[in-house]
Write a protein that binds this DNA or RNA. Structure first.
Lengths: 335, 335
DNA sequence: TCGCACGATGTCAACGATGTCCCAGATTGT
DNA sequence: ACAATCTGGGACATCGTTGACATCGTGCGA
């Protein structure tokens, strides 16, 4: 494996008998090079396996790359990576590349990871905020780097954001349950501390209040400890002296647990989850759904918008949710 | 929004009253700078919102970045994304970043996408080969860029690869069916043309041949048209004059379809899928499983190994699979 | 007390590509 | 026929950082 060193513009130029500027013209400018010269240059380039060095190019062009960073908490969550797919697609349409970095859901590493990306001179930053405070990004924003927060609003930072209709979505789901007579409705949330879960909890309470139910605390299972399984929470609800006749989950984690417990219960307990999932249709599970790809695309579009017009206003977008009824949410309470 | 320009080493140096080299030392070398000077430099840097420019740094250091590219066919396939998560984790341990690019399953765009990444001077390349020929990467490999192919071997290219125990895994699954008396076993494969599916099909035939069944063509549903739904294929198997008593699927696409059709069949038809999936346990679906995270980690480790020792031999790794019995695969044939 | 090692800092060039300016010759208009 | 314009191509500086090497005190052993 003779690891020879990489060819540069100058090497190609020497072999082709032209100046390096001419080679540069062939590869970038496309301006004013005779067909004959171009052929000769391309021939030499191929022979030397030349590949233009984007590091140098970008440096010369003022330190601007064509990559956009997406900072994600937990890479193994299917929700986040579908968002990433949306971002990648939209960026690809504009010739931009996505760099993906994970903070492993650790608030402390967020700033460190983001810093490393900014040092790479990413063109824009899309992130799912994990830490309690994104004010450290303010300087960068003022320097002109678009920052878009996804799924949750950034804290202490003026930035575009794309979030779901969490509160309205859950309220609609709960309303569909109260409409068929349910009053004792459980709610699963874990981790309960984060923005999305707080919003969804609020939606749950909203809808119950509308039918006069204000005492909901004993039907709420709010945890911040990921080791508490959703199955356990569901069982603890069913073990109540006055158990709920329906359960709503704040995320797909809750759905997975609920499915396991509820499938062979008699009398059946109604269930509605948040986040759609593979096979939910086969299982007949009703869910509050939305389009995660669209979430990503929208985030990318906002970033691209700021790149095109740095002085545009910051925007908050809400991605709509919709209730998909598949059976589990349409079970009426026992007579 | 006053978009002021970015501060450089020189700017910080001027403000701190030192040379730019000293500032460089503070941010990189960490070598021999007095505490007092360091304080002063860091102060100026913060005031100017200075951030070192990795483009310039990497250029100066010989055009070597700390990013590794992962080229993926279809970003929305959870399998690939979990692999990506594994890669990202392993790389993070070594201070490297992952860039993700998608070819949208188009063989034509593979070379284009890869080229763009190589121009960014990625340190190594991990890819899921889509095109029929990866020989275009040979030059780059000779230049010392580690290339690792994942899930399928690269064609016409000497490169490390990490693949699953496809053939053995499926053979084991089919054997578990023949062991309890099944002889009429269907096989679903779509897209059937790719390496993994061909291997799995071979495993299926292997195991049937062991029990003397050599005529399997009418039980094989091999499609290359993604618009042919797995449900349709399953139904067409069941509609045979002599329908199979068990079905094996070549991927999770097949499983999803099979689950929908098979759940309320009487007499029940045994089923084993390839690829584990969320809720497979709740549904009692037996599958041939493996660890996709480990697949990614292994790929990353191979790349890192080549970076550490450029002259190391290329390696082929097989990630083990295992049969997880959850009920659907243990149904005996009707008496 | 002198030489020398060492710590703290500075000078300068170079990484690879490109923007700016410049030039020689060919072509065009009047 | 001559100036004006265009076309292909080159020289040189430059983007922001760092490696190699130089410089200047200071303290310490001989």
């Amino acid at each position: 494996m003779t690891t020879q060193s990489r060819a540069t513009l100058a090497d190609v130029a020497r072999l082709a008998g032209v100046s390096s500027k001419t080679v540069s013209r062939v590869f970038a400018d496309a301006g004013n090079v005779s067909a004959e010269t171009r052929e000769r240059v391309l021939g030499s380039a191929k022979r030397l396996r030349f590949r233009p060095n984007n590091l140098a190019r970008n440096l010369r062009r003022g330190g601007v790359t064509n990559t956009v960073a997406f900072v994600i908490g937990d890479l193994t969550n299917p929700f986040y990576f579908t968002v990433a797919a949306g971002i990648e697609r939209e960026l690809a349409l504009h010739g931009l590349t996505m760099v993906l970095a994970s903070t492993d859901d650790s608030p402390d590493s967020e700033e460190r990871v983001v810093d490393a990306l900014l040092a790479q001179r990413v063109r824009a930053l899309v992130l799912i905020p994990i830490a309690d405070d994104q004010s450290y990004l303010d300087g960068e924003r003022q320097l002109g780097t678009p920052v878009v927060s996804v799924d949750r609003p950034a804290r202490n930072l003026i930035a575009d954001s794309v979030v779901l209709q969490n509160r309205v979505g859950v309220a609609e789901a709960v309303r569909s349950l109260t409409a068929i007579g349910h009053r004792k409705i459980g709610f699963l949330s874990n981790p309960a501390g984060i923005y999305t879960q707080r919003e969804r909890l609020a939606g749950y309470r909203d809808a119950l209040r509308e039918v006069g139910v204000t005492e909901t605390a004993h039907w709420e299972r709010l945890d911040d400890d990921p080791s508490v399984s959703a199955e356990y929470s569901v069982r603890s609800l069913l073990a109540l002296a006055d158990p709920p006749t329906a359960i709503v989950a704040g995320n797909n984690r809750g759905s997975a647990g609920a499915v396991r417990v509820l499938r062979d219960l008699d009398p059946p307990v109604a269930f509605i989850g948040f986040d759609d999932f593979e096979l939910a249709d086969a299982l007949g599970i009703s869910v509050v759904a939305y389009d995660p790809i669209e979430l990503g695309r929208t985030a990318a579009r906002l970033a691209l918008g700021h790149l095109a017009d740095p002085d545009s206003f910051t925007t908050q977008v809400e991605i709509p949710t919709r209730l998909i009824q598949r059976g589990s949410g349409e079970i009426p309470p026992p007579a």
